[in-house]
């Protein structure tokens, strides 16, 4: 049994759990069940769900925000200011949402079953010029942020500006944008950090959600032994991912901030609350829109908030 797995880009922290999963599954089945992880050879990243639906490959990674209409339910995890504080929390809320029947039904339209998430840290801003420390200072700020995050900055007077991620560095250099919202590993690989004067350490405006899915027929066609090997490897793969991200990316990130003398901007609770209030409309609108499509939007949103409150011990 060999599965084709479609991911994209280069092997990086973002794909380490897939590599680990392939390794574990092969180990557990004595090399009988292997995975061939292809970086962009099998599909374009925005069309991995199509490939799963066709049956061209058995496993794939994608990000919900690439195509909201393909996966309306999981975009709840991309709403601004949910209050996720770290990768462990991101995993917990994601996997809880993946379990919900409405979400499973949504993805079943693509013949896809959600296996695990690829937790991304919050998309904090890297910026040039004087640090922006208040919500008022976001007024007129040109920010490279896509989808729901772009909406959030728009709500406080920011100007979301479309620039492809690989042009983000140039765009900052050319003052096309003042700030760029990325996860840390992307700030590193697209080198926006090299342009940075400051970084928002605790703004935590939101993130993208990038699940790993499997083709339902392929999953059900597995022998019990192989399916067991796959299912039982998920938690270990995620643990490996978290460990790797913490030790490699985040540690490196802190070092680089120090080396380059980048200012860590800490927002006061009061300012954060102002931002949250200003963007509440986005979540409300999401709930209204998705409810109209027959999705239990309010329930999904409340589940996320409740889970986070529970984890924060509130």
């Amino acid at each position: 049994e060999e599965w084709n797995v479609s991911v994209w880009g280069k092997r990086r922290a973002f794909t380490e759990h897939v590599e680990k999963l392939a390794e574990l599954v092969s180990e557990k089945t004595g090399g009988e069940f292997t995975m061939n992880v292809s970086y962009g050879g099998l599909s374009k990243n925005t069309e991995n769900l199509d490939g799963i639906s066709i049956g061209a490959f058995e496993m794939a990674q994608f990000c919900a925000g690439y195509h909201e209409d393909k996966n309306p339910t999981i975009t709840v995890l991309e709403l601004p200011f949910l209050g996720v504080r770290n990768l462990e929390e991101e995993v917990a809320v994601s996997h809880m949402i993946y379990e919900h029947p409405a979400v499973q039904e949504d993805l079943a339209r693509w013949n896809a079953k959600l296996l695990m998430t690829s937790p991304m840290p919050q998309y904090n801003l890297v910026g040039t010029g004087d640090p922006r420390e208040t919500v008022e200072s976001f007024d007129g700020m040109r920010v490279r942020a896509t989808g729901g995050l772009g909406e959030a900055f728009k709500a406080v007077g920011g100007v979301p500006t479309s620039v492809p991620s690989n042009e983000a560095y140039n765009a900052m250099e050319a003052n096309v944008v003042d700030t760029v919202a990325f996860a840390q590993h992307a700030h590193l690989s697209f080198r926006t950090i090299d342009q940075a004067d400051w970084w928002t350490a605790n703004l935590n405006p939101g993130t993208v959600n990038c699940p790993i899915v499997v083709n339902i027929d392929a999953y059900e066609g597995l022998s019990d032994e192989h399916r067991e090997a796959l299912d039982s490897s998920v938690d270990e793969s995620i643990a490996y991912y978290l460990d790797n991200y913490q030790n490699n990316v985040l540690t490196q990130w802190d070092q680089i901030l120090d080396e380059k003398g980048v200012t860590k901007v800490e927002f006061s609770d009061e300012e954060l609350q102002k931002f949250r209030d200003a963007t509440q409309g986005i979540a409300d609108q999401w709930i209204e829109e998705k409810s109209a499509q027959g999705i239990p939007a309010q329930e999904l949103y409340d589940m996320v908030k409740a889970k986070l409150a529970e984890m924060h011990g509130m």
Binding site: S43, T46, I54, A56
Partner: peptide, 18 residues
Amino acid sequence: GWALGVAVKTAGQVPHSK
């Protein structure tokens, strides 16, 4: 028949998506 369908649908994505 299955192989033909999957192949054609996989190829059929390419023109637009690329």
